[in-house]
Amino acid sequence: MDEEYDVIVLGTGLTECILSGIMSVNGKKVLHMDRNPYYGGESSSITPLEELYKRFQLLEGPPESMGRGRDWNVDLIPKFLMANGQLVKMLLYTEVTRYLDFKVVEGSFVYKGGKIYKVPSTETEALASNLMGMFEKRRFRKFLVFVANFDENDPKTFEGVDPQTTSMRDVYRKFDLGQDVIDFTGHALALYRTDDYLDQPCLETVNRIKLYSESLARYGKSPYLYPLYGLGELPQGFARLSAIYGGTYMLNKPVDDIIMENGKVVGVKSEGEVARCKQLICDPSYIPDRVRKAGQVIRIICILSHPIKNTNDANSCQIIIPQNQVNRKSDIYVCMISYAHNVAAQGKYIAIASTTVETTDPEKEVEPALELLEPIDQKFVAISDLYEPIDDGCESQVFCSCSYDATTHFETTCNDIKDIYKRMAGTAFDFENMKRKQNDVFGEAEQ
């Protein structure tokens, strides 16, 4: 370990593993360490099931009705991949897709007046949907046509809207959309967690709705994908990429100290040895004095023996409960997957309800979601602090990732990755940087 590296990475969460992969592909010498004996950090999948019970201090362990412990891979952080989103792009560019198998999530649902409705995925579904009345549908269709044709580089498509100054509230007004449709559009399509976006320039919202539609167009059922064997497969896929390009991995490796000289990182000390480096990437748990708390998320993992009611017996789905429907500031989400994804025993389902904490009784906040899941065989409640770095790391060369937020997709995580890359490399992130180099010394032969 007593060696000189360009970059040392602490923690094998998804953000850290993707950055480690990119740095290795770009010719950097990388050492990647984790104090845990497993990959994934906060974003790991726990197996066998006995391990999950232990982690949540349920000492009696799983009953026999849960089947074989080894058949379970339970995500600690519930997220899906947008089919046309940035993480899929990263997987394709790096060819990490060859280590993973994905399934399309069967449906996306939205909560309205105590019931759940399928988010329409085709024009026919939209016309048949009970989510809105006849005239509302016509106006909504006009709005969707506007979004589909919108091109930020072609003012002819703006229809009198200025993407940089017109607020989204004004765009909704222009198409005369009612409150329910606005809730549905902002939260189930643009996937905002709160209503803060309404008074911001509309460009980002329009682009988010386009991303949803384009992702949906790829597979038809929903815009989301999920990897077989759980999300823990993602960091491992990128760790393989890093290793192929010469990255060194050490799990179960305690970090005793991060060594600084004149305010700059110069190395990491572990078990009496020092590895030197020019730059350091880590998750917040490794540098508690360089991060601040930015809120909390509650996630309740529920094991069920039945599909969720009114989802047409889907073996995977997402449910969004827009905040307006339950008098909150932030949406509540449910991600459900099952034995069909090799993450649970035969006939079992895993539904994870999550939201940003707003009160001193977080469990009560998630109740509307839990009511949709009854009866629940077993619950595991996790309340996590969200951390963000206190500075950009440019001076110390210590670059810290943000905690995983309450969103049900990876777009915010990818933004964090691109942002850290830019601060480390001094140049904007470009997907081309992730391409495997042809015929290089570490390149794998085609399968």
Score class of each variant (00 low, 15 high):
Ala148Glu: 00
Phe80Cys: 08
Asp440Ala: 06
Lys28Asp: 14
Asn310His: 12
Arg423Pro: 00
Ser384Phe: 11
Phe380Ile: 12
Tyr387Cys: 13
Asp377Gly: 08
Lys137Trp: 00
Asn252Arg: 11
Gly11Glu: 01
Leu372Ala: 09
Ala351Pro: 02
Tyr224His: 04
Thr97Asn: 00
Leu386Phe: 06
Phe399Ser: 02
Phe442Pro: 10
Ser108Ala: 15
Gly13Ser: 06
Phe431Leu: 11
Leu280Pro: 02
Cys317Trp: 04
Asp34Tyr: 00
Tyr53Asp: 01
Arg173Met: 14
Val30Ser: 01
Asn149Ile: 06
Gly186Ala: 08
Ala275Val: 09
Tyr333Leu: 07
Arg292Asp: 00
Asn149Gly: 14
Asn149Trp: 14
Met134Ile: 08
Ile244Val: 08
Ala425Thr: 12
Asn36Glu: 13
Ile300Trp: 12
Leu228Gly: 02
Ala275Gly: 07
Leu14Ala: 14
Arg218Pro: 07
Asp416Glu: 12
Asn315Thr: 09
Pro375Asp: 02
Asn26Phe: 14
Leu370Cys: 05
Val119Glu: 06
Ala239Val: 10
Ile303Phe: 07
Val9Trp: 06
Gly21Phe: 11
Ile300Thr: 12
Val274Phe: 13
Pro368Arg: 02
Lys54Asn: 08
Ile417Met: 02
Glu214Ser: 02
Glu374Tyr: 11
Lys418Val: 12
Ile321Lys: 13
Leu386Lys: 12
Glu3Ala: 08
Ile22Asn: 00
Asp416Ser: 15
Met260Trp: 05
Phe429Cys: 08
Arg240Val: 02
Leu386Met: 00
Cys394Asp: 15
Gln164Gly: 14
Ser316Val: 04
Phe135Pro: 08
Glu95Ala: 13
Val30Phe: 13
Gly61Ala: 08
Phe150Leu: 10
Arg68Leu: 07
Thr427His: 09
Ala351Ile: 14
Lys422Leu: 01
Ser270Lys: 02
His306Gln: 04
Ser338Phe: 01
Asn26Met: 04
Val171Phe: 03
Ala340Gly: 12
Tyr333Asn: 05
Leu189Thr: 12
Asn415His: 11
Gly107Arg: 12
Tyr99His: 06
Ser316Leu: 14
Pro254Ser: 10
Tyr349Cys: 07
Gln279His: 05
Val30Met: 03
Leu131Gln: 06
Gly178Tyr: 04
Ser384Ile: 06
Ser354His: 14
Cys414Ser: 12
Arg328Ser: 06
Thr194Tyr: 15
Arg70Leu: 06
Thr194Asn: 05
Glu16Phe: 02
Asp377Cys: 07
Asn153Gly: 07
Lys422Thr: 06
Gln346Leu: 11
Leu251Arg: 05
Pro362Ser: 06
Cys302Ser: 12
Gly220Tyr: 08
Val441Arg: 11
Ala314Thr: 08
Ile182Ala: 14
Gly230Asp: 01
Ile116Leu: 12
Lys28Met: 12
Asp199Ser: 12
Lys253Gln: 14
Arg240Asn: 02
Thr360Met: 10
Arg292Cys: 11
Gln325Lys: 00
Ile332Asn: 04
Lys221Val: 09
Ile18Asn: 01
Ser330Val: 04
Thr15Phe: 15
Glu271Thr: 02
Ile321Leu: 06
Thr185Pro: 04
Tyr39Gln: 14
Val255Phe: 03
Lys89Gln: 06
Arg436Cys: 05
Arg299His: 05
Gly114Arg: 02
Ser24Phe: 02
Asp154Glu: 03
Glu3Lys: 09
Tyr404Leu: 07
Ile77Lys: 15
Ile298Val: 07
Lys112Leu: 09
Ser384Asn: 04
Asp257Glu: 00
Glu363Leu: 15
Val105Ile: 13
Gln200Met: 13
Asn73Glu: 13
Glu64Val: 11
Lys269Tyr: 05
Ile116Met: 03
Met134Val: 08
Ser20Thr: 05
Phe410Ser: 06
Asp416Tyr: 03
Gln325Tyr: 06
Leu216Val: 06
Glu16Met: 04
Glu367Cys: 15
Pro284Phe: 02
Leu131Met: 00
Lys278Ala: 12
Val265Ile: 04
Ser403His: 12
Ser270Ala: 12
Glu363Cys: 08
Gly178Cys: 09
Tyr421Asp: 10
Gly272Val: 04
Val266Trp: 13
Ser44His: 05
Ile320Thr: 12
Asn342His: 06
Ala126Trp: 05
Leu87Arg: 04
Glu432Cys: 06
Cys317Leu: 08
Thr205Pro: 05
Gly27Trp: 02
Lys253Ser: 01
Met424Arg: 03
Glu60Gly: 11
Thr407Ser: 13
Thr412Ile: 11
Thr94Glu: 15
Ile209Thr: 07
Asp34Cys: 14
Thr412Val: 08
Tyr172Arg: 03
Gly41Ala: 00
Met424Lys: 05
Ile300Pro: 01
Phe146Asn: 15
Ser354Cys: 05
Gly295Glu: 12
Ile258Asn: 07
Val381Gly: 06
Thr413Met: 15
Met23Leu: 12
Gly232Ser: 07
Gly178Trp: 08
Asp195Asn: 11
Asp257Arg: 15
Glu432Lys: 08
Arg139Ser: 00
Leu10Thr: 11
Glu273His: 03
Asp405Ala: 05
Thr15Ser: 14
Met66Arg: 03
Lys112Thr: 05
Glu3Cys: 08
Phe109Ser: 03
Val181Leu: 01
Ala239Leu: 13
Glu106Gln: 06
Met82Ser: 15
Ser213Asn: 12
Val181Phe: 03
Gly67Ala: 15
Ala239Glu: 01
Lys364Tyr: 15
Ile420Gly: 03
Val291Ala: 10
Ala128Thr: 11
Val265Met: 05
Arg292Thr: 14
Thr205His: 15
Thr124Ala: 09
Tyr349Val: 04
Glu446Tyr: 15
Cys317Thr: 02
Thr12Ser: 08
Ile287Asn: 13
Val105Gly: 06
Lys348Ser: 13
Gln179Thr: 14
Phe102Tyr: 04
Lys435Glu: 07
Phe143Ala: 04
Leu131Ser: 13
Met132Ile: 09
Asp331Val: 03
Tyr212Pro: 05
Asn415Cys: 14
Lys278Ile: 06
Pro389Tyr: 14
Ile22Ala: 06
Val181Ile: 11
Pro120Leu: 03
Thr413Val: 13
Asn252Asp: 11
Ser384Ala: 00
Glu4Gly: 08
Leu241Ile: 05
Val25Gly: 12
Cys414Gly: 07
Ser20Cys: 14
Glu106Lys: 03
Tyr197Asn: 11
Thr97Cys: 13
Arg173Trp: 07
Leu76Ile: 14
Lys142Gln: 08
Lys142Arg: 09
Ala239Pro: 03
Leu241Trp: 01
Ala217Thr: 09
Glu159Ala: 12
Phe80Leu: 02
Thr94Leu: 12
Arg292Ala: 02
Ser384Cys: 07
Ser24Arg: 14
Leu191Arg: 00
Glu271Lys: 09
Glu51Gln: 04
Leu14Phe: 03
Glu367Gly: 12
Asn207Lys: 03
Ile383Leu: 08
Lys54Arg: 12
Asp289Ala: 11
Arg328Thr: 00
Pro307Thr: 08
Leu304Cys: 05
Arg299Pro: 01
Asp199Glu: 00
Asp313Tyr: 05
Asn310Val: 01
Met250Ile: 10
Leu280Phe: 13
Glu214Gln: 01
Gly267Ile: 04
Ser270Phe: 10
Pro155Ser: 09
Asn73Asp: 07
Asp196Ser: 15
Gln325Arg: 10
Gly114Cys: 08
Ser316Glu: 04
Asn342Thr: 11
Pro63Asn: 08
Ser396Gly: 08
Ile244Leu: 13
Pro78Cys: 13
Ala275His: 14
Ser108Arg: 03
Ile383Val: 12
Arg208Leu: 06
Glu388Phe: 01
Leu234Phe: 11
Val206Tyr: 06
Glu367Gln: 09
Tyr421Arg: 12
Ser396Thr: 12
Glu446Ala: 12
Gln318Ala: 05
Asn130Ser: 12
Val357Ser: 10
Ile244Asn: 12
Asp195His: 04
Lys364Leu: 03
Ser242Lys: 06
Phe442Lys: 13
Phe143Lys: 01
Asp385Arg: 14
Pro155Ala: 06
Gln57Leu: 01
Asp183Glu: 10
Gln397Leu: 07
Ile281Met: 09
Cys400Leu: 13
Leu203Arg: 13
Thr122Pro: 05
Tyr5Lys: 09
Phe135Leu: 11
Ser44Asn: 06
Lys156Thr: 07
Lys278Val: 14
Ser330Arg: 10
Arg299Cys: 01
Thr15Tyr: 14
Gly295Asp: 07
Ile308Lys: 12
Val366Gly: 04
Ser167Gln: 06
Ala239Tyr: 05
Leu198Phe: 05
Gly114Ser: 07
Glu374Ser: 13
Val119Tyr: 03
Asn153Trp: 05
Asp6Val: 02
